[in-house]
Amino acid sequence: MQPFDYFSPKTLPEAVEILSRHNGDARVVAGGTDLLLKMKGGRLAPKAIVNIKRLAELRGISETSNSKLQTPNYHLPITTIGALTTLEELRRSPIIRERYPSLCDAANTMASVQIRNLATVGGNMCNAAPSADLAPIFIALDASAVIAGPGGERRVPLEEFFVGPGKTVLESGELLASLEAPPPVGPSLYLKHSPRAHMDIAVVGVGLAAQLSGGVCESARIVLGAVAPVPLRVRRAEAELIGGPFSAERIDRAAKIAAEEAQPIDDVRGAVWYRRKMVEVLVRRGLTAIGGIEN
């Protein structure tokens, strides 16, 4: 590892000041499970490391009343998930289990308990791996990124947070403070295809959320992981479902369209044709489960 200056700020403004001062040469460390691996491998050599684990305002999962009257279920609270929430805290949280069980499902598929006790929700987002398991499901749930920076706080729909592999909209001096999830509009699901049950990244990940009313699909979000440079919302597939009956035929068509919209690459984990096929299979399987439709 190359030498670096180590900082452990106690307040958010102090952290922002240190990051701004280093103008992009500093890296934030939370869990460190992605960062340390890159630094040990020589793929990353930051001039400064900013440990943000002492920032109390980035911790915890809480509910606040919803002031956005235009959002569905506005009478229900918004859930704020601090960037420092570990994957293990996420999957064990009573709030998350009750309101967003699909997030628990996603966290359950990730790494080992040893890594889940270190790795954070914010790190999974900021590392911006195309295969990040939490990204597709958070986007399907319409979450927003709350970003702290020199100019104060700003919010970005998580869908727009990712720019490319390892790249996000975070500017120099900014850091991810939390994710905000609006009240769920209906059932949601995360499905992961991976050769192993644990300790492996997704060949394909699919985050799904739908609002169904009397068998009719009012809204649907289909988000794919590991098959594009960023977590990918497949809007043509969503449009196929919205406004019509949530039938096996429409689900089948949406699954096939999702496979067309995917932009996978060939790599050691899967070939392009295989990833497309798995997108179709998982989207069909997940939507079928969401609709409770008999095969």
Binding site: Y6, T33, L36, E88, Q114, I115, N117
Partner: peptide
């Protein structure tokens, strides 16, 4: 030395973690 094998597992504040995947300074 990359968080995969678990041979370095210790308890940090009571919870099992891979001690190869955290800077000692972060454990202050």
């Amino acid at each position: 030395d990359s968080g995969d094998c678990g041979a370095c597992t210790v308890l940090l504040d009571g919870k099992p973690i891979t001690s190869c995947m955290i800077l000692a300074a972060d454990c202050d």
